[in-house]
Design a protein around this nucleic acid. Structure first.
Length: 573
RNA sequence: GACUCGGUAGCUCAGCCGGUAGAGCAACUGACUCUUAAUCAGUGGGUCGAGAGUUCGAUCCUCUCCCGGGUCACCA
């Protein structure tokens, strides 16, 4: 049983009962046929006024301005808001004015869903409005929505801004702050534009296992679970790379997957425990081909979202039209630190890190040390889309060795606005080399590197059957959407970012109170007095409780019989 | 995980060098037939995040905990 309703919630529940008493179903089952939407009307009414002489629209009441027997209200549907105008004698043509005087003025509230039928007109102040002829209640709202007010300049006066509540109650956030819906609409466009691009090339969208017996393809701590029937541990995937490569082995030329990945690691404004990645693998290609593909694809995606290939991100205008700058890992470090690390051994790299005041630890191998220098000194400088290419072999166990440069692999990462958003290789398809590289990872794991990759024997078996030369790419969709919508936190591009659970107040059920002899109608009074559990009640002074019950009865104007004193004393035995 | 800021009415916030709280919006009662941050008159609404300590007395001071934001660390 829910308790401790606020004053406004109690009033709304009473309104609900009164609607029922009037024979109005506050939650009707019938379809409500809508013939127009707010944005459609505001966009097109003035050009085609005759089209809007009889419209039916539906949405939430978001604001009401009542002036006696006429009222204005704002109705919000999925496309926006439109003002509606109600006149008592128009919606109540007969003697009975209940629908206007009682239902609309008293029993309806901000947040209620209603449908209206009427004609569109221009008010004296020039606002496109719907003159209501019929009013239908579609769903009663029992919790008051925050009321966000906007003035003529668009300034927000009573915002709903607390991030915690916004993320926990996204349904409220998007109702009262509908501008945030644009982020999610753009997110959907990003994904559909990318999917369209791939489909045009004839590549196949696939689905691979989320529950995996071996968590391969990346280096991260997994979420572990257990399958009862098979009585075996399973992991939520940290990557899908090795499964997609199996499908290339199986004979598909191009496969891609949009999917959730799960990593049991820290959370901050760029990390959520589950996130969306897009991975694509195309046979007979290499990473140089992939760079061009990514340029074309991202330009098309950006145009689909913004109409142009450029996007404003914070203070920077970022242009996604290719070609992008290409810079090798070593050259990028040389460019931003003046240090040539290409020929250094592990000891030299450690010394360089020390000189640059970069913290390292003993478990780091050569590749990891180079990555640390890169992260600390180069990354933040890469604002316009930039490919960093040719990584040290130690960092990248799944990429093919560079065709000409010893000790490097054919890999690039795409950096935009100082952040990595894509990662691609000429995929390693030499099964013997692959086995050795994964064995090296096991050695790193032995040194305490908990990011080292796990061995996957079935994947190696697939490679032994033969995988064509292939290029693969992964894109972090959440971060790409952050860029394309100019958001600085991942929570703003996820409908339901992960949160710690809300604290639940310990509350006894009504039956618990009834069991000790409290009359049912008095339970909510006790709750109102602050007694959420029987124990709390028993700890109180019985005489004071008896007196306070009378006080509360008067205060709440309750028409219920006062329990006699003996009964109240009985609750404390 | 560390540091830091915050948690007060449905929402946004103020307040108190310790004497149990205020505003605007929302709500309620009334007035009002073109308003639009509607207006006017009146009214109610709060275990001040939780617990403990100090105190005659804690929303305020101290400690612990919970939840969130920011920064950093971790996270290819």
């Amino acid at each position: 049983m829910s308790i401790a309703l606020s004053e406004q919630e109690i009033i709304r529940r009473e309104s609900l009962q009164q609607l029922r008493a009037l024979g109005i179903n506050p939650y009707p089952a019938e379809e409500f046929k809508v013939t127009a939407q707010a944005q459609d009307i505001t966009d097109n009414f003035e050009a085609h006024p005759d089209t809007y002489k009889n419209v039916t629209i539906a949405g939430r009441i978001m604001n009401r301005r009542i002036m006696g027997s006429a009222s204005f209200a704002e109705l919000q549907d999925s496309t926006g808001r439109i003002q509606i105008y109600l006149k008592r004698d128009d919606i109540c043509p007969d003697e009975d004015k209940t629908l206007y005087n009682t239902v609309f003025k008293k029993l309806l509230d901000i947040g209620d869903y209603v449908g209206v039928k009427g004609y569109v007109f221009l008010t004296q102040t020039g606002e496109i409005s719907v003159h209501v002829q019929e009013l239908t209640i579609l769903a009663k709202s029992l919790k008051p929505l925050p009321v966000v007010k906007r003035d003529e300049e668009g300034n927000i006066h009573d915002g709903f801004t607390d991030p915690e509540t916004r993320y926990r109650q996204r349904y409220v956030d998007l109702t009262v702050n509908p501008e945030f819906k644009q982020i999610f609409i753009k997110r959907s466009k990003v994904i559909s534009a990318m999917r369209n691009y791939f489909n045009k090339q004839g590549w196949l969208e696939v689905e691979t296992p989320i529950l995996q017996p071996v968590h391969g393809g990346a280096a991260a701590r997994p979420f572990a679970t257990h399958h009862n029937t098979l009585d075996m541990p399973l992991f939520l995937r940290i990557a899908n790379e090795l499964y997609l490569k199996r499908l290339i082995v199986a004979g598909f030329d191009g496969v891609y997957e949009f999917g959730k990945m799960f990593r049991n690691e820290g959370m901050d404004r760029t990390h959520n425990p589950e996130f969306t990645a897009m991975e694509i693998y195309v046979a007979y290609k290499d990473y140089i081909w992939m760079m061009e593909m990514v340029e074309n694809c991202l330009e098309e995606v950006t145009r689909a979202v913004h109409g142009i290939a450029a996007v404003q991100v914070g203070p920077n205008e970022i242009n996604f039209a290719g070609p992008y700058t290409r810079l090798s890992m070593y050259d990028s470090i040389l460019k931003y630190t003046g240090i040539d690390v290409s020929a250094m051994d592990e000891a030299g790299l450690r010394e360089t890190c020390a000189n640059l005041k970069i913290e390292v630890d003993a478990s780091m191998g050569k590749g990891k040390l180079i990555d640390e220098i890169f992260s600390a000194k180069v990354e933040a400088n890469l604002i316009q889309p930039t490919y960093i290419t040719d990584y040290p072999i130690e960092m990248t166990p799944l990429a093919k060795k560079h065709r000409t440069k010893d000790g490097l692999v054919e890999r690039f990462e795409l950096f935009v606005n100082g952040k990595e958003i894509a990662n691609a290789y000429s995929e390693l398809n030499d099964p013997i080399d692959q086995r050795e590289r994964l064995e090296e990872q096991l050695v790193l794991a032995g040194r305490g590197d908990d990011e080292a990759m796990a061995m996957d024997d079935d994947f190696l078996r697939a490679l032994e059957y033969g995988m064509p030369p292939t290029s693969g790419l992964g894109i972090g969709i959440d971060r790409l959407v952050m860029l394309l919508t100019n958001q600085s936190t991942i929570q703003e591009v996820l409908f339901f970012p992960q949160m710690r659970p809300e604290k639940k107040v310990k509350v006894a059920t009504a039956d618990d109170f009834i069991n000790i002899g409290v009359p049912a109608e008095w339970v909510q009074v006790l709750n109102k007095m602050g007694f959420n559990t029987v124990e709390e009640l028993k700890a109180a002074n019985p005489n004071k409780v008896f007196n306070d019950l009378g006080g509360m009865r008067k205060k709440l104007k309750l028409e219920i019989t006062m329990p006699d004193k003996e009964l109240v004393m009985g609750w404390f035995e």
